[in-house]
Structure formats: C-alpha cells, structure tokens
Amino acid sequence: MYSQVQDFILENKADLVEKWKERVKAEADEKVLEVISEQVFSKTSHDFVDLIISNLEDSDDYSSKLKGFAEKVVRLGWPLAFVTSGLRIFDRIVYDGLMEIGTINKENYADFVHKLDKWMSPMHNEIVNAYTTTWDRTVSLQKIALQELSASLIPVFDKISVMPLVGTIDTERAKLIMENLLSGVVNHRAEVVLIDITGVPVVDTMVAHHIIQAADAVRLVGAKCMLVGIRPEIAQTIVNLGINLNQFHTNSTLRKGIEQALEMTNRKIVTTEGSI
C-alpha cells in the first residue's frame, strides 16, 4: 500500500504541490500569508512534500530533514496551526487523487483509510514535536538575547546614565532590570538615570508598577530617575489606567531627557561659533 502511495506522490509531485499551495492559501489566515513571499512559500512547499516522501521511503536522513524543515518554518514565522493544517490538507489531496485513479475503491476503502491514517498520524506527531522543540529553543535564545541587549545601564555623560528597555517586561525581566539598574548606578556613580521605554510596546499596570519600583530603588541609592520615550499612545494608556507617575521626571524623547539631565547636574548644551 505504501509503495502505491509513494509512486502516486512521486509521479504527481508537481501537481500535488500546486493543489496543496492553492488549498492552504484558501484556508490560511491572511496575516500569515502576508509575511511569506511567493518564492519562499513555493520552495517551502516542495520541501514539505520531499519530507513526506522521505517518510514513505523510510530514508536515513528523514530525521535531519524533519529537523531542518521545523527550523525553517519556525524561522519563517509559520504558526503551528498552519503547519498541522497543511498536513491535513495534503492527506486529503492524496486521498482524493487515489480515489480518482481507482487505487482506493469500495472494496479496499476501509483498509486504505486505516493505513493512510497509520502512516500520517506518526508523521503528524513527529512534525509537531520537532516544531515545538525548535520553537521552544528559539524563544529561549531570543529571550536571553533580549535580556542581554535591553537591561544594561549605559553611561552617556559624567553622572548621567541611560537604561534603554526593549520588548515586553515581565516579572523575571523586571528583576534583572532592577539588579542591573542598581549596580550600574553605583558603579558609574550616576546622579541621574534615564529609563527609556521607547522600545516597550505596551505599558500596563504591571509594567508601570515595575518601573515605579525601579525608580524608588534608584532614589534609595541617592540618584534621580527620569522616564523618557513616552509616546502619545503610551501617555494615553497611563492616564486611562490612572497610573501615578508624579514621582518621575518625564520626557517624550531621550534627547530632551538628556538635556534636562544636564541641567539637573548644572550643565547644559551650548552652540559654539561656527557649529552647524
């Protein structure tokens, strides 16, 4: 039976890929397809069918192909539901094709359906497991990279330091931010610390609470804290949530914040003769 399915897929590979692409696009979320170019989608579709053929052939490199395919679709941003839907659609296309050419008929229908399911189900589980493993690893690496990039206190002038924050702030990141903030204030002997939230997509009650805690901690070690990078939509959210930031110096941009920080440390930016 498997040899019949294998022969059918190999003989009709180009046609099966085109049908698969057409049906997947018809059922997929438009937002997913918007981020995938036609060329990349076509190439990945062929890789998908090659993976299925490798499974049928019990190929020695099936595991490596499976891992490579999982890494690729995760990197491309394909949701797991999109991948599993693709498996279901391909199964249906193969079934319909075998029905059309008479390989599946009334006499062998039940046996063929059972064997098709026996073939597809393990592969479905393997692909899901490979996808989730790759996704978990990718998220972990991204989380580590984000923490390393967005929780450092940077001295920009004598007595003035900046901490740029990027991405979502959860409890774990807030703890790291607090530790780096306090140690940085002491190490750099900062008198004014600017917390830049330009790269924070959402400021809700929890995020504001973490920032307020950080500001309180900075004051306890003898420095002043300023919140900069407050976009109009963030300002509106803060007002709507009733979050009290009165204890902060605030500014809409990092540039304005640095100018104010210089004034707070008895300095200012001046324009010299001949400067542009």
Rank of each mutant, 00 (worst) to 15 (best):
A26M: 08
I160T: 02
D170Q: 01
V202N: 01
V17Q: 11
A81C: 09
G97R: 02
C225W: 05
A110Q: 00
L66M: 12
S3K: 10
E22Q: 13
S121R: 11
A174Y: 01
T198V: 15
V74C: 13
S59V: 00
T271W: 08
R23H: 10
A261N: 00
I101Q: 12
L227D: 05
I52H: 03
I154H: 04
K21S: 14
K21I: 15
F69I: 08
R255C: 10
L76S: 00
Q260I: 07
L149W: 01
V218C: 00
R92Y: 12
G184W: 06
N240R: 09
A174M: 05
D111M: 04
V203H: 10
K143G: 06
T84A: 12
P232Q: 01
F157W: 09
V113D: 04
E30H: 15
K65A: 11
W78E: 12
R231N: 01
S3F: 07
R231V: 03
L254P: 00
L245F: 09
Q4S: 09
V139P: 10
L56R: 10
E148M: 10
L76T: 00
T272N: 15
T171E: 10
F248S: 07
I269K: 14
G257F: 08
A26C: 12
D50F: 08
F41G: 10
R75M: 07
F90W: 08
V49T: 12
I52E: 07
T171K: 03
S3M: 07
K175W: 03
E30I: 15
I169S: 07
L181T: 02
G68D: 14
N240M: 09
D60H: 09
Q260W: 08
P201N: 00
L194A: 04
V35G: 10
I160P: 06
T250C: 04
S275H: 03
R88E: 08
N105L: 06
I154P: 02
E27Y: 00
V203A: 00
T103K: 12
V202A: 06
P232H: 03
A130Q: 07
R92Q: 14
E27S: 13
E233H: 08
L262Y: 08
A223L: 09
T138L: 11
Q260N: 05
V221K: 05
L262Q: 01
E107F: 13
F157L: 11
R23L: 09
V49K: 04
E233A: 12
Q236V: 09
E30V: 15
E27H: 14
D136L: 13
F48N: 05
G199D: 02
D170G: 09
T205M: 02
I144N: 09
T253N: 11
E22N: 13
I234G: 03
V239T: 13
I243K: 01
V186M: 07
P79T: 07
E259H: 15
D170W: 05
A14L: 10
D117V: 11
K224P: 11
E259C: 11
V239I: 11
I89K: 08
V32Y: 14
V239W: 03
